[in-house]
Write a protein that binds this DNA or RNA. Structure first.
Length: 789
DNA sequence: TCAGCTCACACTTTTGAATAGC
DNA sequence: AGCTATTCAAAAGTGTGAGCTG
């Protein structure tokens, strides 16, 4: 289930609402892809079908070793170096990658189950920052929260074996400050402080958000967004650490010296051009390279005057400049110097590891990023300490103890139900530096145990949203593992990731098998190692993800009945009003922002057919109020900040906080309009979490004709759910697989369009061309519009 | 006036098509 | 004909700095 902290969009504050309505106006023809009926259906679903399996959680608790999921930040040292200076991330209109990138190591996953990895970035506080006096100062309040987007790792979904067999990198994720971004990049405000988060979700649960889900936060990955670097130290660090910026190094062709020389030469050439009379062909000879020249300035000048062809004497080495050379900076680069120098001895190792990486620049980057894992410099974040007055940092709820290392079981609703004004301000840097547990090789993140129930939010009267961070009332251990509270019910003990044979007609499986094969082929073509993932018998046939139906009639899903997280007040649903299940039409749904092999979501039971009354819930207000939202949902409701509370983490600490995705919008709605999330009472479960925030598939670049780079998978938080267009004609709906609300299996397909069912193709075209939407690539299956109904 | 943003620029790396060789 | 290795050009990523904007 989506927590409001995870997906602030769930709260649908004014901003989001406005956004939704804006979209609606702009695309009047746009039909909600995700039928509100589902919300209704979800609301009507019996609690046992919607909530996270508490029983499983308890069961898992008895077997702590089984479901403990660990995540390590492989390049933690690099991050800490940056953080010690004050990490800045450039954001541009076109999107900018993060550097350092998130390089993670996962363990504790079931090798045979498939998981989806998500990255999202949330504000740390509600402050805007300015670089003053050599440091960042909070100045004023943050700008309105932007639509939250989620970046899905391109490998998703992949088996646990796959994730655990390699370094996981999110370097494809891009950050932008373009609020109208259609590329699916993560939209951030400049001069704001953010915290990346990584979520691990069982693939088959991704669309139902009911299965085990783990969220991780690494404090050292916090950064401040900028459009131009403010801190020269950061610039130097980046230049020395990022291969793409090699040209700006002292010995690079784009170094300041070289640039100055070029500029000088340019002026000189211009002068010569103008002064034709005085032009002497021999004059240029003065600038010819002098092999014996040792003066850097002269060399630079010489280089500048050289023709494009590299000259042996110019200092330009076509061969890879050794890191020894490039990483050892000038005097001014004390930080990077110390750091890089400390890594030199390990480069060989890191290179070796890097070669195992996925294709792409990651290897190059990994060469550097990995190197950081070997050394552990003293880490002191340069981010301003929380200031009671100037920064909302102070207001952020803070985990109350260092015990947050341990994963927390979802606490009782009372755990965090009280505001935490009394929580001492946490000086993030100091905490980090004082951490005794700082790992020299990796960082174990804060862990956020969340449960997804998606797309069928548990209807509940529960009104208690779950703060992202829970005060660890029961830090049971110092382990950094999360305890999957819900995985048990959804995760078969065996490794099989079943296209539930028992529930899935063979016909469908046959139908989708080609996709499965195709997917594997695609992966191979992409050079992505198809590792253990396919070794599993289940994987062999499960390229098509048929999510176990959680319908009342479907016995497959395990005992979700007794989950403590589930809203016990959920109204029983004798029948599912949601038409999705009724038709049982297998509809391919392209996630443009999803990796090619994942671009299609098959909704076996989803029928876009307008014939289904349940799909006709075009009432915008309905969405706004949602099934989960009480009628009295305050229009002026202030979206609870998803800002991360200033974590009292210790640097390597695993801040375990239960922030189940099962965030109840209802609960948010029930809060005082101005309620701050941090002050919101914590509920272990949510009633209709996912129903509300419409899942918005933000920029689906894959759909675009010209995806600038590898498919990035960014979802708008409010719309992780593929939406269905009830108005679209349903052509030859496949036989219903499930009588009731469908589980939205994922269908793997290389070409999203080819596998699209007609209705969805139409939908896609509609998005792309239909109403003149500014997004040229039509990349947005912008689920956020769902909120507009 | 100035902080912040945009864009063009030069450089580097990555990627994939084209080609050659076996 | 098929496979592998090499070459090369285009695309993409990077920080810089001038110019623009509010």
């Amino acid at each position: 289930m989506l927590s409001m902290e995870m997906y602030p969009g769930l709260t649908l504050g004014p901003q989001l609402i406005g956004d939704c309505f804006y979209r609606d106006r702009e695309a009047p023809a746009h039909i909600p892809l995700f039928p509100p009926a589902c919300d209704v259906a979800a609301k009507a679903l019996p609690p046992r079908l919607l909530g996270p399996p508490s029983v499983a959680s308890q069961h898992d608790a008895s077997k702590p070793q089984k479901d403990e999921v660990k995540m390590e930040l492989e390049n933690a040292s690099l991050w800490k170096h940056f953080s010690s200076v004050g990490t800045e991330m450039i954001i541009t209109k076109k999107g900018r990658r993060m550097f350092p990138g998130l390089r993670l190591k996962l363990s504790g996953l079931n090798p045979s189950l498939r998981y989806i990895l998500l990255l999202d970035i949330v504000p740390v506080d509600k402050s805007r920052y300015r670089f003053q006096g050599g440091g960042w100062q909070a100045v004023g309040g943050a700008e309105a929260r932007l639509p939250d987007r989620v970046f899905i790792h391109p490998d998703s979904p992949a088996t646990g074996a796959h994730w655990q067999s390699r370094t996981i990198s999110f370097h494809y994720a891009k950050l932008t400050n373009n609020t109208l971004d259609s590329q699916g990049h993560i939209i951030l405000h400049s001069l704001h402080r953010y915290q990346p988060r990584v979520h691990v979700i069982e693939a088959r649960d991704v669309l139902r958000w009911g299965g085990g889900q783990h969220s991780f936060v690494f404090p050292e990955t916090q950064f401040i967004t900028v459009t131009a670097y403010q801190n020269i130290k950061i610039t130097e660090l980046k230049i020395n650490a990022n291969p793409f910026a090699k040209g700006f190094r002292e010995d690079g062709m784009n170094s300041k010296k070289q640039r100055d020389a070029r500029q000088k030469r340019k002026v000189s050439v211009l002068t010569e051009t103008l002064d034709i009379v005085n032009c002497d062909p021999c004059d240029s000879a003065e600038l010819l390279p002098q092999p014996t020249t040792t003066s850097a300035d002269l060399q630079a000048l010489t280089l500048a005057s050289l023709p494009p062809m590299p000259h042996p004497s110019c200092g330009f080495r076509p061969d890879e400049v050794s890191y020894q050379d490039t990483l050892v900076p000038e005097e001014s680069l004390d930080l990077s110097q110390a750091f890089m120098a400390s890594q030199m001895s390990d480069i060989g190792i890191t290179m070796t590891n890097g070669m195992q990486e996925a294709p792409g620049s990651e290897v190059a980057n990994s060469m550097i990023e990995r190197s950081d894992t070997m050394a552990e410099p003293a880490y002191t974040s340069s981010f301003p300490a929380a200031q009671a007055n100037s920064s909302s940092f102070t207001s952020a709820p803070l985990p109350q103890s260092s015990s947050s290392f341990s994963s927390l079981s979802v606490p009782a609703s009372s755990d965090t139900s009280e505001p935490q004004p009394s929580i001492p301000l946490i000086d993030y840097p100091s905490l980090l530096s004082s951490s005794p547990t700082l790992s020299s090789t990796s960082t174990t993140p804060s862990l956020q145990q969340t449960s997804f129930t998606f797309p069928t939010p548990p209807p509940s009267s529960s009104s208690s949203p779950q703060p992202l961070l829970l005060s660890s009332s029961s830090p049971s251990s110092n382990t950094y593992q999360s305890i999957t509270e819900t995985i048990g019910s959804h995760t078969p003990a065996d490794a099989s990731f079943p296209a539930p044979s028992s529930t899935c007609p063979s016909g469908l499986q046959d139908q989708i098998s080609p996709h499965s094969r195709h997917t594997q082929t695609s992966q191979q073509l992409q050079g992505e190692p198809v590792t253990n993932g396919n070794s599993s018998p289940t994987d062999q046939s499960s390229a098509v993800f048929i999510y176990p139906n959680i319908l009342p009639t479907n016995p497959a899903p395990a005992p979700i009945t007794a989950q403590p997280l589930t809203n016990q007040n959920q109204a029983p649903a004798p029948s599912l009003p949601c038409s999705l299940a009724a038709h049982g039409s297998s509809t391919s749904f392209p996630f443009s922002s999803v990796p090619p092999h994942m671009q299609n979501l098959s909704f076996p039971n989803v029928s876009p057919s307008p014939a289904h009354p349940a799909l006709h819930l075009p009432n915008p207000s309905h969405q706004a109020q949602a099934p989960c939202l009480p009628a009295g949902f305050p229009a002026s409701f202030t979206p609870p900040s998803s800002s991360l509370p200033h974590p009292p983490f210790q640097p390597s600490s695993c801040l375990a906080f239960s922030s189940p995705f099962q965030q109840s919008v209802t609960s948010a709605a029930s809060l005082p309009p101005a309620a701050h999330p941090q002050n919101l009472p914590n509920t272990a479960f949510s009633s209709c979490s996912t129903s509300y925030p419409p899942v918005e598939l933000g920029g689906i670049s894959q759909f675009g004709a010209a995806a600038p780079y590898r498919p990035e998978m960014v979802l708008h938080h409010p719309s992780l759910l593929p939406q269905l267009d009830p108005s679209l004609p349903s052509s030859t709906p496949p036989p219903a697989l499930y009588p009731a609300f469908p589980p939205y299996p994922l269908r793997l397909c290389q070409d999203p369009h080819s596998s699209l069912s007609i209705p969805f193709r139409h939908l896609y075209r509609q998005h792309q061309h239909g109403h003149g939407h500014p997004h040229p690539q039509g990349s947005y299956l912008d689920m956020s519009t769902r909120a507009v109904f």
